[in-house]
Amino acid sequence: MKITRGAVVEEAGNSIENKTGTWRTFKPIIDYTKCIRCMICWEFCPEPSIYKEDGSEKPAPKEALKKLPVPIIDYDYCKGCGICVNECPVKAIDFVKEVK
């Protein structure tokens, strides 16, 4: 490892090399048949390990919702805190024991 002068980190946001998903003991899983795509989980994810993706191919509780983006959990970084599970207004996120 090269030690930089003044402990300067030259590459912004390189913490993505740390895969903090290994911390997880419980895993949140979004049930897209219930998800109303309100993005509250995306707003509150502390990592942030939830991102938005085009949702036209995902199942949805109503056809009209398919126009909206869906939240996707990035398990490389999700620490399994469960805030998304607790805050989901339609209880569309299951929280299951992690199997590794």
């Binding site: 913490s15 740390n18 903090t20 502390p46 942030p48 620490k79 399994g80």
Partner: peptide
């Protein structure tokens, strides 16, 4: 993700500060 704050940091699970 395009947040200006990247994942992979060491804040405890469930800490509100990164939010």
């Amino acid at each position: 993700n395009d947040w200006l704050f990247a994942p992979g940091h060491g804040m405890c699970a469930g800490c509100a500060a990164p939010i």
